[in-house]
């Protein structure tokens, strides 16, 4: 996967700010050696660690009813992992890597899902947001009824909304530099 990177290391053009004309003809599926973003070291470390950080965020979310953490903390961790990619690789690469419209839809959908879980509790158990699922065994990962479900929903909500607001801020910053 990192075979084309070897040529990039000895390429002196990566330190220039001007876009290379030959970069379009190269492998466009991984445009990580482009002009935007930080140096190669930062990009490599980011590529290795971003999935670990996202995995840790999911761990925090899924164990929110057993250990400290939960949807809020795990959501912020996932948002920070995506923000790491945005800072290291720049806005153009992130737009290709992530489907921003999908993230916006997840963000809006999670607010709706929270209400749907609440209304299901109203129908099944008689009160809004009632814990209508089985409580299960204490200290088991799958337990506590709707609490892990709502934790996952809140985690996605927090992660997507916090990442998207930084995304919009980053875009504004660039157009502003041209204007000023």
């Amino acid at each position: 996967m990192s075979k084309p990177k070897i040529t990039v290391i000895i390429d002196p053009d990566i330190y220039k700010d001007t876009p290379r004309p030959s970069s379009d003809k190269k492998d466009t599926s991984k445009p990580s050696s482009g002009k935007s973003g930080m140096t190669l070291i930062v990009k490599t470390v980011t590529r290795i660690t971003v999935w670990m950080i996202i995995l840790y965020g999911f761990y925090i979310i899924l164990h929110g009813h057993l250990t400290p953490g939960g949807g809020f903390g795990g959501g912020v961790i996932i948002a920070l992992a995506l923000l790491n990619v945005l800072l290291a690789y720049g806005r153009d690469f992130t737009q290709k890597w992530l489907n921003i419209h999908l993230l916006e839809n997840i963000e809006s959908l999670s607010a709706l899902l929270f209400v749907i879980v609440g209304i299901l509790g109203l129908f099944v158990s008689g009160s809004f947001l009632a814990n209508f699922l089985s409580k299960g065994q204490l200290f088991a990962v799958v337990s506590a009824g709707t609490i892990p479900l709502l934790n996952i929903i809140i985690g996605f909500k927090v992660a997507m909304s916090l990442f998207l607001v930084v995304w919009v801020l980053a875009g504004i910053k660039m157009s502003k530099g041209d204007a000023a």
């Binding site: 909304s161 916090l162 930084v166 801020l169 910053k173």
Partner: peptide, 11 residues
């Protein structure tokens, strides 16, 4: 969230 909103307003 409100910090982000304030930053947006100031920008």
């Amino acid at each position: 969230g409100t910090t982000a909103l304030l930053v947006a307003l100031v920008v």
